[in-house]
């Protein structure tokens, strides 16, 4: 239940703004670090929400939609079109209409920051039968991967999905994750990676699903 929002900024070796005049020799450690929170809300599940998750969340959080006044389908179509043509969203032409349809269905909603996804009874049973350090099921992880990760990271995880190469920085090559600990990979899955298009999945995937995904990712490493 704990949403860890670490908002901290460290001005290392800097008092108010001592960057102006470092002492002789200067500290090489005068770095300001900005930690921004991950997205607080998700697109509400429904026909087309997978498109909104796939495309809209590349560049911005779902609040961009949920703060808007209600728009007609024509207006949403115009906005989606602007995202494609003006802002370079890699949305396919055939996805534009269903995405606009979905956005119209969201017109009257303003979701609150949500609790993490609920585990089903079946999943709870599955967890209960395992030790805390259990490994997930790579097959279940693979189906999650195909649903949520493939468009950016590509079928083999090399970051070469249809959207992944259009990003700055490009989607990560997951076959190189070998050196990262389970903890680090899970943290990235949960919280996303600031400064990249990698979103937080903690509102969409529960702990068990994240473990399945981790197990699948481990199969990608040579």
């Amino acid at each position: 239940m704990i949403r860890v929002w670490i908002f901290l900024l460290l001005l290392i070796g800097a008092t108010d703004f001592a960057w102006g005049l470092p002492a002789d020799g200067g500290s090489r450690e005068q770095v300001s670090i900005l930690h921004l929170p991950s997205d607080p809300i998700s697109f509400q599940p429904g026909p087309g929400s997978d498109l909104a998750n796939r495309y809209c969340l590349i560049c911005h959080s779902a609040e961009y939609v949920y703060m808007q006044p209600p728009h007609s389908r024509e207006q949403w179509m115009e906005i989606v079109n602007k995202m494609q043509t003006t802002f370079g969203c890699p949305i396919s032409d055939e996805d534009m209409a269903p995405l606009s349809d979905y956005l119209v269905t969201q017109n009257s909603l303003q979701p609150s920051p949500s609790a993490p996804p609920v585990q089903s009874d079946e999943q709870k049973k599955e967890i209960a039968g395992r030790s805390p350090n259990h490994s997930g099921d790579p097959l279940k992880g693979e189906s999650l991967y195909k649903r949520h990760c493939l468009t950016c990271h590509g079928p083999g995880g090399k970051g070469d999905g249809p959207i992944g190469q259009a990003l700055i920085p490009p989607a990560a090559n997951l076959t190189l994750l070998g050196k990262q600990s389970d903890k680090t990979v899970l943290e990235t899955l949960r919280n996303g990676r600031p400064g990249t298009a990698m979103p937080s999945w903690k509102n969409d995937l529960n702990a068990l699903e994240l473990n399945h995904l981790l197990s699948f990712l481990r199969t990608l490493t040579p």
Binding site: R3, L8, L10, I33, P40
Partner: peptide, 22 residues
């Protein structure tokens, strides 16, 4: 590590993390 190091210098500007839940 960063936090510890900078606090030791007494120079960090540090914001208390704030939680937000449903």
């Amino acid at each position: 590590h960063l936090l510890k190091g900078s606090l030791a210098l007494g120079l960090a500007s540090f914001l208390t993390p704030r939680g937000l839940s449903a």
